[in-house]
Nucleic acid binder design. Structure first.
Lengths: 300, 300
DNA sequence: CAACGGTTTTTAATAATTTAGGACAAATAC
DNA sequence: GTATTTGTCCTAAATTATTAAAAACCGTTG
């Protein structure tokens, strides 16, 4: 009934490894050194040392501690499956929302979600609080959470928002100095687009990755934490939609490649107006694709 | 050691009031009716009824419950100070960050903050998680939180972000139909600006409110949850800075009024290019004011 | 006297506990 | 017989309690 002791277990095993490298009867370094070695605080080290004494691996008298025997595999503490769920939670949650078609205005049960996702309720709530800034979820008046839902309005507003940010990026890009690394990336992307266009008949499913790289490159010129944070959600959602909407995928991707190339052409010609127009056209296509995939989903 | 029973206490007192309106010996309505009356669930009503029986106010046998005596003031349950801190927390926290000049990269102690602000640790963490989306705070690698701080970079990026959003709003506004309500608001704002310009010598401190109303009006044409959420932070921070930076306040405000009027003029002339240019100029001023106030603060 | 180890205090993460809300079935009144 | 009411039980969420970890403090020793 408290925070888990994974930290202690890992540190313990790491100390065992350290002991294994020592000769028999050798003295161990100071607690502070051991703490830094294992990347934990002295408190944890002392707990580990206590156990090492119990196991008879070392003797520990004041600041004198030396090895009695070499550790064997049975001394290790089991540490069950790593967690690091915090980072993946966002992906998995959005995956759930977008893939399983959770209807709008669904009440979310923290308890149930935390069971399904295998994360602590606590972490989940923090995550939901973060998402609420984007209006995907909201607090219910009397406690609990509610999915505002991935609705048509949401998609429209997201697309519009994307348009605003990306047009700005394009405008900034057109004025970027010639030695800016983005130009190299763009020319590499042009080659990749042309290459994919050649073998589009068979490899059209490779496009989403290219699309993401392309838009990421465009936005790389804008160094802004607010924009970056927004782009994270935008790309996540558009990316997921690419993954399901398989209708006319090949022809859509073929067209998108041409639209991308038009943008690159205009940018490399430093023609800001033409680039903006090309981007506008591309994002319009993208928006209508997103919306139609949504409609599709509603009917199914 | 559980969720607080304010809900129960309030319901209890409300039921007492309901009893007071009944004649002696009268029968009480069903649990469900009482529940709706008090705005709580039946579970709470039953708990209240149990207490009413203990107090000897009613007898309760199956579905037959009637009044024994009228309640007196001593029967009421005390309910100490309302909470509703969740809404005010944001304001108070930002106030603390911006006013007391907390340096960047300060470790935030959830325990300490929750004591100072008088909210549960839990609520505070949720709040911090929400803020982390804006990059004002961040999680530390090994648990805990850290204030990324209101730094120069933050101010610059915030201003740039604002510029992007607001230029978009202006562009949309210039194309809004003549019967859009924003035009009425703008003409009212023009009058208010002119009026304030007349008496700027004495009433210059009235400007911040006008400024907020002006920018709010501009952005009202953009119906977009992402933009709206972003604007919330933007206006909050700019608003706070207006409140402290008193250097040359009068002349700054006088100039700002003229800049606002230039924007309104251009918009009413439907000259999108001129409006954008005027807005750009105004936001540039605004940005440098924010930055200089920050520098000022650093030195003080 | 500087580094080290013992002890205490503080903090963050988690489990446990309690209240609230709701579902379902049995019971009662009309 | 039917519709409403109540008894019972279960789930979920909010909050406290508890524990692990980290850090601070202080005496001690080489």
């Amino acid at each position: 009934m408290a925070r888990n002791d994974i930290r202690y277990r890992q540190a313990h095993n790491r100390l065992l490894d350290a002991c294994a490298t020592l000769g028999p009867g050798a003295a161990l370094p100071s607690e502070q050194v051991l703490a830094e070695l294992a990347g934990v605080s002295r408190t944890v080290v002392r707990r580990c040392l206590t156990r090492l004494v119990d196991l008879g691996i070392i003797v520990w008298q004041g600041r004198d501690k030396h090895l009695m025997r070499l550790p064997d595999p049975g001394d290790r503490l089991a540490l069950d499956g790593g967690d690091n769920g915090r980072d993946q939670l966002e992906q998995r949650f959005l995956d759930w929302v977008l893939r399983f078609d959770v209807p709008a205005d669904t009440a979310l049960s923290v308890a149930e979600l935390s069971r399904n996702f295998g994360v602590a309720q606590h972490d989940l709530k923090e995550f939901l609080a973060g998402l609420s800034r984007f209006g995907l979820v909201a607090r219910r008046p009397r406690g609990g959470w509610m999915l505002r839902g991935f609705t048509k309005d949401f998609a429209i507003e997201l697309s519009d928002f994307r348009l605003v940010l990306e047009l700005d990026a394009i405008a900034k890009l057109a004025e970027a100095p010639v030695d800016h690394p983005v130009w190299q990336r763009l020319s590499a992307l042009r080659a990749a687009h042309l290459a994919l266009a050649e073998r589009i008949e068979t490899d059209f499913h490779e496009f989403p990755k290219l699309d993401e790289a392309f838009h990421e490159a465009l936005n790389s010129v804008v160094r802004n934490r607010f924009v970056a944070e927004s782009q994270k959600v935008i790309s996540l959602i558009f990316h997921y939609h690419y993954m399901w909407d398989k209708t006319e995928e090949k022809s859509r991707n073929r067209a998108a490649i041409q639209e991308h190339l038009a943008i690159i052409d205009a940018l490399e010609a430093r023609d800001a107006g033409r680039a903006a127009e090309a981007a506008r056209r591309h994002l319009r296509t993208s928006k209508s694709t997103l919306l139609s995939s949504l409609r599709h989903h509603d009917l199914g």
